[in-house]
Nucleic acid binder design. Structure first.
Lengths: 164, 164
DNA sequence: TAGATATGTTAGATTTACTTAACAAATAAA
DNA sequence: TTTATTTGTTAAGTAAATCTAACATATCTA
């Protein structure tokens, strides 16, 4: 029972950023964190103090920033949620990419594990749909959203005709 | 162009609570707000000061709390989102009610207007589904979530058999 | 109507996250 | 290898949102 440590949404954002920077640049530095998060370097310093105190990052003065295993675990979870929500918003709901990115960024701190898992599976369910890129029922929703009107689906038609 | 005023998530929660209390009790009082939000009365006083200053509530010392039209507009929007998200989580994703309520409470401050509208329509689309309480594709997802396996849907079967 | 109880307010402190300004260390360039 | 530039830190202050303690007002009840 690895009593998963927690931190504030703000600190979660720092962890996620550090993870992303490490992936992109091999290392994470204060200045890069500062720039990607649009905060000033002292804010980063302060956050790193907190995160270090709470066992999420390792940071020696003037050195690179690294994640502890706890920190990495949390960061990866947040990052996965971020990706998943982004996909859900763009690919299922067809939200415009900019808005989807912004929403995902906030939603990632708002949802429970249970909801996260369900949405992940839902996305997987849609994406592994065999009959086409976008399943018929989603196309049907697209039409409903645009026109407010329901298309009768094939099955219903056939039920009416007595073929099923 | 009524340049919709905004406020922080915390203040949004106060507005929503005031709206709900007014509906339930006809009036909203500091003590009731305090109790439903699980904060102490001085926190409410402080919040009311801010909300009053920013034109969202009207509050005379020792009197009832009321919403301005701006405040009511915002409160109603938040409340609708809350309800919608709650329904979405419970009825589409089958999240357990307690978790759904908690998630909705946080998500209502995280989503854009665009996402809110899309989700609302999506819910409406599912709920006005004519063929059953829960459309076939959602039942199919339920099965996928439980077993990890896809059921072939009727249409596919027929396509294979050459009936469509 | 006077005292007791419930409700509301103010003052002051704490926490979190941010800022600017001043300084320190590290790196790059002359 | 000195100087200049970039990067990082510390100090001090601001703004939300919360709390406790002390006080004020309102309402209920004897």
């Amino acid at each position: 029972m690895g009593k998963d440590k927690k931190c504030s949404p703000d600190m979660e954002d720092y962890l996620e950023t550090i993870l992303v920077l490490k992936r992109k640049n091999k290392v994470a530095r204060v200045r890069d964190i500062s720039q990607s998060m649009h905060v000033k370097p002292p804010s980063v310093a302060s956050a790193l103090h907190t995160l270090s105190r709470d066992g999420f990052v390792i940071h020696e003065s003037y050195g690179y920033v690294d994640l502890t295993s706890e920190g990495e675990k949390l960061a990866k979870m947040i990052q996965k949620r971020h990706e998943m929500l982004n996909k859900f918003l763009r690919e299922i709901l067809c939200i415009n990419p900019k808005t989807a990115a912004e929403d995902a960024c906030r939603m990632e701190h708002a949802i429970s594990q249970e909801t996260s898992k369900k949405l992940t599976k839902f996305l997987e369910f849609v994406q592994t749909c065999p009959d086409s890129d976008r399943p018929d029922w989603l196309k049907s929703f697209d039409h409903y959203f645009k026109t407010g009107k329901r298309l009768k689906c094939k099955i219903q038609e056939m039920k009416q005709k007595g073929n099923l």
